[in-house]
Design a protein around this nucleic acid. Sequence first.
RNA 1: GGCCCGUUCGUCUAGCGGUUAGGACUCCGGCCUCUCACGCCGGCAACAGGGGUUCGAGUCCCCUACGGGUCACCA
Length: 465
Amino acid sequence: MITTRFAPSPTGYLHIGGLRTALYSYLWARKNSGRFLLRIEDTDLKRNSKEAAEAIEEAFRWVGLSHDDEIVYQSERFDLYKKYIQKLLDEKKAYYCYMSREELDALRAEQQARKERPRYDGRYRDFEGTPPAGVEPVVRIKAPTEGTITFTDGIKGEISVRAEDVLDDFIIARADGTPTYNFVVAIDDALMGITDVIRGDDHLSNTPKQIVVYEALGFDLPKFYHVPMILNPNGKKLSKRDGAMDVMEYKRMGYLPEALLNFLIRLGWSHGDQEIFSFQEMLELFDPKDINKSASAYNAEKLLWLNAHYIKNATYERLITELQDFDVNIADHDKKEILVDALRERAKTMVEFAQMAKAIIDRPQAYDEKAVKKFIGEDSLEILKRYAAFLQISEKALHLPVDFEEVTKQFMAKYDLKMKNLAQPLRISLVGTSVSPSVYDVLSILGKDEVIYRIEKFIEHMKKA
RNA sequence: GGCCCGUUCGUCUAGCGGUUAGGACUCCGGCCUCUCACGCCGGCAACAGGGGUUCGAGUCCCCUACGGGUCACCA
């Protein structure tokens, strides 16, 4: 059984880097009928963990991820950690260190002056004497001083480091008794039964320290997968303005969650040449062994393309529901399918979709000057007037785009007009600009009466001007 | 600076010793056409550099360069 976990520190929101590792962890667990757990790394306290957890769950809900069991808060497990600290103390695998911060700072300064790696010198490692007064001790773990630590990373391969290069007796409990990150991560992963740790590769160099904890406590090591970072389009670290903002911000910008997920899974992972992955396919095909070794840059155009793809293929119900979040309610519109089909090919985001829908449904507030200048000629108004009259007396029932196409062709034949002569003036009269879906679609969506009304209003407006 | 990791078109990537180095996004042409899109067809564009190993290297090894991560009583 595979158990994975997502273990963010409470920053207040979930960004796409976090979402991606969460997705990978989720997929790997679910694919193997395993469990996917959520743990909040809040040993630091200061920040509001509940709020952060709620933000993460909200984002999970939006994209369709779910976790098993209750959320684990490290801040609620201090007693547990204390027991393990005591255990290591009793077994002499950890010890109190009475070095003051000043002494520590001085030591580091010296080492740096000598161009050495700053590290604790182990002065209290085997201390048996009377502790200096007035110093609240920290607890340090005895780390190996020689030899190498080797582990296999599921993405990077075998990683091997020399103990003397990277380790020292690091602190596992602060002077106030609270435990530190590298200590609790190892304990919680072990106690929660995590078999596969999938996390950002900024944790790669923490892994040896955590292995020291696992070994001191006699826990089995999980498999590690260190996922490369997401970079901004310039190859630098991702910041908020590049896309590292709250995942929910993507919803507000009109992205569909399936597009975001498809975008993220493909960023650093691939399955041959396949670009489009349904959630089901992600579940079937994802394997962390196929994750790339190198960092990848955030590519906004590709996200947009994927979003457009999912909009094109979404159901009517889905799109109509999504539209409600952007103040467009067409659930009761009798031509809603025609409207949706006309716009789904054109919108890259739901925000654009909504804007385009409004541009058709709402009567034009103004007429684009450039368009008028370019397309409204001497006889345009006369043609429109006749066209409206032609529609008015039409005996045929006008509902679908093909109905309007038919009468329009009859009209053009009667007056020996070309589509080019009619289409743009008509479009401008209906929506106020020279850009819109097919005029036949617009005609159908608006319906005969509204069409005639808008044409008359336009003629009126032009005559006034 | 020490340690660790990485480097195929601008970007995401395929490749797993023998390929005209493939696909996708973007961009540029063309077709379609009532505008804008969509769609379709076509095009530009890459193995960081240098040494090895090998009959043969994008693929294996070493070095260099560049990029990133990390070295806390943060996580």
